[in-house]
Design a protein around this nucleic acid. Structure first.
Lengths: 236, 236
DNA sequence: AAATAATGTTAGGCAAATCTAACAAATATT
DNA sequence: AATATTTGTTAGATTTGCCTAACATTATTT
């Protein structure tokens, strides 16, 4: 049985590696920053998780999850996203409020609870932020992650997710009038600072490059329509 | 902010005092046994909670909750019972499965979550075991607690709750065919060991005194129909 | 290549929550 | 009332997860 803390380390490593496509693994400092801890603390835990065969760690090297570690981390992510969906769909939470509470709920230990919750929600594929919910077998659908920042001027695309789940960012997205599945028309881009002008539902807005980098979009020529299954069993 | 552990101590004290009508308070050993800990551990925590003004504790004396301690403990109980109701009503858990999971869920910190959950469930008054759910103001309805053991031969009564929430007991209750709101007809009682014969929904069963003591019942002449509100503000 | 900066590690310490073992006080029994 | 039993307390140790401070390694820059 993993502690609350150990689960958070595994989840962080999953986010810093698999989800960000950072194949070599995550550095100790990077991990510490992500978890708001000191590097010394992260270092201790990496050694502990290596002992438990959940993490690949070598002195002065990058760390990554073992197959078992990835399975456990994926399960935490699954729970997190199912709870977010519950809060949003059933309890009428706003999308910028669900993350914080799900951070607590994701650690509840009960296989039955997760499976029943999944069923109660109608086996959802995506959470309120557009992120893929891993299925009960620990499989995580991978989507190509083109961001609005990479979109071409004059093209239209559809918003499918956000990359940053922080309440402050999500509230800003609301303010711009952007919602998942909305069509975004890119009107212009300043070459100097990549400031973009976009139109959504008839409303024009100027957005910074930092903002645009956190909006995940799909377009006709994207391969987003044919998602690949990244099975844990497929990983040697 | 209280730790998970501190909340459990407060809840235990509530159960050992207010709920069991044990006015003088609970002993250190008694508390330790209830929480499956050593008396030395409970002793340390009592001193810590006294410092925080949540518990009245004097060396070699009985301990009880302060008004603030009782408020916090009642809130934990409220969350526990709301979650049990959710699991039972919405996720189709059996009544002997809800307690264990609710022991974890009761510690989730989010006022909004509790209020929304309460609303989602239709502001339920009782949990799946027939226990009263404290309301959002921390008020706990008190019911007279006549047990089946105290019922007179040949009388009929209605099962309103169980006193023991352990899965093993609840499964036994299922086996006897007893459910909340069922009418129980007391057919006989052996003077020697208080073994009772009862009839429920046409089915006759023999039950031990220990079993009967854990079934809470109501009858026409009980004052159970007019519950008193035990408000925290009413307690000096 | 040497100096500087960034990153990672180790050692030692602290607080929370638990334990054991020894001791003290209160209660019950003879 | 003396003794035995139960109950409660204290002191010291352990584990987990965190810290700071000093040091070591690797990467970057001049």
């Amino acid at each position: 049985m993993l502690s609350y803390t150990e689960e958070n380390y595994l989840k962080a490593l999953l986010q810093l590696t698999v989800e960000k496509g950072n194949k070599e693994g995550a550095g100790t400092n990077e991990l510490a920053v992500h978890l708001n801890l000191k590097p010394a603390t992260a270092n201790d835990m990496l050694k502990k998780l290596k002992e438990k065969k959940l993490v690949e760690y070598e002195k002065y090297g990058k760390s990554s999850l073992t197959r078992e570690g990835r399975r456990l981390a994926t399960d935490v992510v699954r729970k997190h996203r199912l709870w977010e969906t519950f809060l949003f769909e059933k309890l009428a939470f706003a999308w910028d409020e669900v993350h914080e509470v799900a951070e607590q709920l994701e650690h509840i230990q009960s296989k039955k609870l997760v499976d029943k919750l999944d069923e109660f929600l109608g086996f959802p594929g995506f959470d309120p932020h557009g992120d893929v919910i891993p299925n009960a077998r620990g499989e995580l659908q991978m989507r190509s992650t083109k961001t609005l920042h990479e979109e071409v001027v004059n093209h239209r695309c559809t918003m499918v997710a956000v990359k940053d789940n922080a309440a402050s960012f999500l509230q800003y997205v609301n303010q711009v009038g952007l919602r998942i599945n909305d069509t975004i028309h890119v009107l212009s881009r300043q070459p100097y600072d990549d400031l973009m002008e976009i139109e959504v539902n008839g409303k024009k807005s100027s957005i910074s490059s930092r903002f645009a980098e956190n909006i995940v979009v799909s377009c006709k020529d994207c391969d987003i329509a044919k998602p690949k299954i990244k099975s844990l069993n497929a990983i040697k």
